[in-house]
Design a protein around this nucleic acid. Structure first.
Lengths: 295, 295
DNA sequence: CTATTTGATAATTCATACTTATTGATTATT
DNA sequence: AATAATCAATAAGTATGAATTATCAAATAG
């Protein structure tokens, strides 16, 4: 007596509402006519409303039934759509990948990667946020971010890393600096100049690497300024407040009165890595990683 | 193996998605925890998509699950609304009553009736259409109309009639016509004038009644013009092309250079009747009739 | 280490959506 | 008018599967 409406009822109802004939509707549904009759009757009881008028060889919708038909059509269609959508999201063909990146990553791999992702998974939407190494790690651990582009030697347990780009370092000098690309042999030639570097806590790895480059030449650099923005660093160099050492790809995208000298013959490299959570459940990320790890 | 999604699944799913705890969700649903577990699992199998992540004391939604939750909430809410609406329509508190009327009914009862209906059943919408007697009857029989206001002595089988308003007839004369209300005794005084009447096929009853009024005074009127519009008839009278006999209430709502002389002491009346189908299934009409028959 | 909590299995029960067989009512056919 | 055909509703019985209880393995807390 205290039944509940089910989708089965709606599907049966719709068949009868379309055919206006119990036997034909039952055949279409591959069930018996008596079964259909009782189910429709039960549905009317649950709703407390008559949906069909059956008198003298005729089955017709009541106004309430006509209204319900329209709504049931809508609901079933919407449900179909939802089921498809759930599958797409579940299989990662649709969804959102939240990406964090270090400013310096924007000059190299990230734009290309986004392009490939868009092409391969047009349904996957990406959000981008420029963050420090540390912020990215925290965000990934807290599930606020799916993927990060960082410069770090080590990452906390539970995260996976893969280096995606190895960049040489370049010396950044004012345009009219006496040292020229042809004359350049090693960093020891500018050991006495002031150095402008990225902040240590913005990227400890970068900082350590730059120090090791100097160490290999037997000196400790005099770091006069630190910044988190390449823009700022270049501006300071332009104004002759010091010289800088940055990943080579950073030279693109800026219009400054500075010159870059690539240091190809040192072993150190600026390594950019992807970081993500090992057990991230975002299927869109899974697909994304399948694509990225192939490159 | 080849099951079908049911509303039950959605309700269970929503409970788990809200509680993020199987036992608590099961308690809320008044079912056992194992039952809930298997149903959710089945749902995931049907959809071919994982909806929850259960690992190490934690239950969480996958992106697909989060999407589905939003949609399920919408669907269940919409369904609730639909069920309520169906009940309202089924009980006649909401719906549409399609009303037809003779032009002359608009001057007497119809507007008042609509007002009362609106007040008593604010959910019931009415549509109005001015139609001839015959058109109304046909429309009611074909179920294009729920209720008609006609002037007819008899209606086809299967229809019900009830007279709602009895109007006296009035003589319509040009404003400067020699005959005055004080001098008026009976219609025989204008027996020699031309008469302008409503067309016979627009309302046979009216036509017959007018003829019988004249007959009672021993003459057959000379009908010079016929029309279906009161407006036209009055205009013709104004221009002295004849005199007319119309239901008294028609004098309201027109601005014409004509005068009305009410003929109170003849037995004939202009009877306005409601007509509807005995087995009309529109519950809104049922309610409407309950109200109207009390007046 | 033990006690408690979690969700998942296993076995069983029970509700009910189905089936087939039939009826009563209406319409079409001769 | 009598018969046949067709409709949906009803009755009785069956079988599917959603529930139950009992239990487990894994994890956490005291």
């Amino acid at each position: 007596m205290n039944y509940q409406i089910e989708l089965r009822h709606f599907i049966y109802f719709l068949a009868v509402a379309e055919e206006l004939h119990y036997r034909k509707a039952a055949e279409k549904l591959f069930i018996s006519q008596p079964g259909l009759s009782t189910q429709i009757k039960q549905m009317e009881e649950i709703l407390g409303t008559q949906l069909f008028v059956r008198d003298k060889k005729k089955v017709q919708l009541t106004p309430a039934g006509a209204y319900l038909k329209k709504e049931v059509e809508f609901i079933l269609n919407h449900l179909d759509q939802t089921k498809k959508q759930v599958k797409l999201i579940g299989s990662g063909q649709m969804g959102e990948v939240r990406i964090g990146f270090l400013g310096s990553a924007m000059q190299s791999v990230v734009p290309d990667l986004l392009l490939q992702l868009k092409e391969k998974f047009p349904g996957v939407h990406t959000t981008l946020e420029e963050l420090s190494n540390r912020s990215q790690i925290n965000a990934i651990l807290a599930d606020r971010l799916d993927l990060g582009f960082v410069r770090l030697a080590r990452v906390p347990k539970g995260l996976e890393v893969k280096s995606v780009f190895e960049d040489t370092f370049s010396l950044v000098l004012p345009e009219d600096h006496p040292l020229d690309e042809r004359d350049f042999k090693h960093i020891g030639q500018v050991a006495n100049e002031d150095f402008i570097l990225f902040s240590q806590d913005y990227s400890p790895m970068y900082y350590d690497t730059v120090l090791s480059i100097c160490e290999d030449r037997g000196f400790v650099p005099n770091v006069s300024h630190k910044s988190v923005h390449a823009q700022t660093i270049f501006k300071l160099v332009e104004n002759k407040l010091g010289i800088a050492i940055v990943p080579t790809t950073l030279q693109h995208g800026f219009q400054m009165k500075v010159k870059f000298i690539e240091m190809k013959n040192i072993k150190q490299r600026a390594v950019l890595s992807m970081v993500w959570k090992s057990d991230n459940r975002n299927p869109a990320l899974q697909n994304c990683m399948d694509l990225l790890l192939k490159l």
